[in-house]
Amino acid sequence: MSNKTLQAIFDDDDVLLSAVKDLRAAEYHIEEIFTPFPVHGLEKAVGLPNTRIAIMAFIYGVIGFSFAVWMMNYMMIADWPQNIGGKPSFSFAENMPAFVPIMFELTVFFAAHLMVITFYMRSKLWPFKKAENPDPRTTDDHFMIEIAVADDVNALEDLLKKAGAKEIKIKA
């Protein structure tokens, strides 16, 4: 592996998509793609594995639900089983309907917030994080592919030019 990176800039998402397909067909390794908006079908074209963040959200939801059940059972049934307005506090099941709203809210609360925190951690996003897009135009209307290259870059440049790249830069 050499440590050179080739940056190809495109100005259209459909051209980008077909260029990615060409690159994949020629078995180049795509390091990174920067886009201003989600280009549908791009992760499939690159062969990116699916994200598992929804699975985590489900697990977080289960945790939230369990916490709600544990909390209300402890406070209302185990710790102070009082008679409040004739509500049966002998067992959790008897007074369960009154606990449903909070069980639901805490499930959603845990699932949503922990998933978002997971997203921020996994994508490394936080308030003082420095932006890492190499070209500021990639948040406006340009698209950039980064490819790690060996010494011979001419073939790759030709392929990208033919695929419709507007600009090609090589960074050592």
Binding site: T51, A57, V116, W126, P127, A131
Partner: peptide
């Protein structure tokens, strides 16, 4: 902007997070 750079993987997660939210 929390250093948002618009990476492909970030967009994939972003869309999944939006959908689940």
């Amino acid at each position: 902007s929390f250093g948002w750079s618009g990476r492909l993987k970030d967009w994939q997660r972003f869309e999944e997070v939006s959908l689940v939210l």
